[in-house]
Simulated assay, not measured.
Amino acid sequence: MTGITARQCSSWALPSLLAINLALMAGCADKPPPQYASPSIGSNCYAKALPTVGEGGLAWGVTLSIARQKSLNNCIRYAGRSGGTPDTCQVVLAECRN
């Protein structure tokens, strides 16, 4: 009796598991990959700010002043998280590309 029940169960269990797996994978396929340090459309200027100790920050902006301000804000945030000195952040590189 248990041999018949096991066969009946296995005949639908594997296809069901495969269908669930495919459905879950399809739900993640349409999401775009995250973009971390890439510039947004129209952002031609970038700036890098570094503290004396800790991690710095790179930022993109439409203008040079926006990029500089964003990089300083990132530097203060990252230096504080990395055990550095946020109050010593300075912009060390700022350029706009053509």
Rank of each mutant, 00 (worst) to 15 (best):
T2H: 08
G3K: 11
I4H: 09
I4V: 15
I4W: 00
A6I: 14
R7N: 12
C9T: 08
S10D: 06
S11Y: 02
A13R: 14
L14E: 04
L14K: 10
P15L: 05
P15V: 01
P15I: 01
S16V: 12
L17T: 12
L18R: 12
L18P: 01
A19I: 04
A23C: 10
A23T: 08
A23Q: 06
L24Y: 12
L24Q: 14
D30L: 11
D30R: 06
D30K: 02
P32S: 04
P33C: 12
P34M: 06
Q35N: 12
P39W: 00
I41V: 10
G42R: 00
S43V: 00
C45F: 02
C45M: 05
Y46D: 13
A49I: 06
A49Y: 10
L50Y: 10
P51Q: 01
T52C: 05
T52Y: 03
T52W: 10
G54Q: 00
E55D: 10
E55I: 09
E55T: 00
G56D: 09
G57W: 03
G57M: 11
G57I: 03
L58E: 10
W60A: 01
G61K: 05
G61V: 09
V62L: 04
L64M: 03
L64Y: 03
A67M: 06
R68F: 03
R68D: 15
Q69L: 14
Q69S: 13
K70D: 13
K70Q: 11
K70L: 05
S71K: 01
S71W: 07
S71L: 07
S71R: 01
L72A: 10
L72H: 04
N74H: 14
N74Y: 08
C75W: 07
I76G: 02
I76E: 15
Y78F: 04
Y78C: 02
A79I: 08
R81H: 10
R81F: 09
S82N: 03
G84I: 05
V92L: 07
V92Y: 04
A94Q: 15
E95L: 10
E95P: 03
E95N: 13
C96D: 02
C96T: 02
C96L: 03
R97Q: 07
N98V: 12
N98F: 07
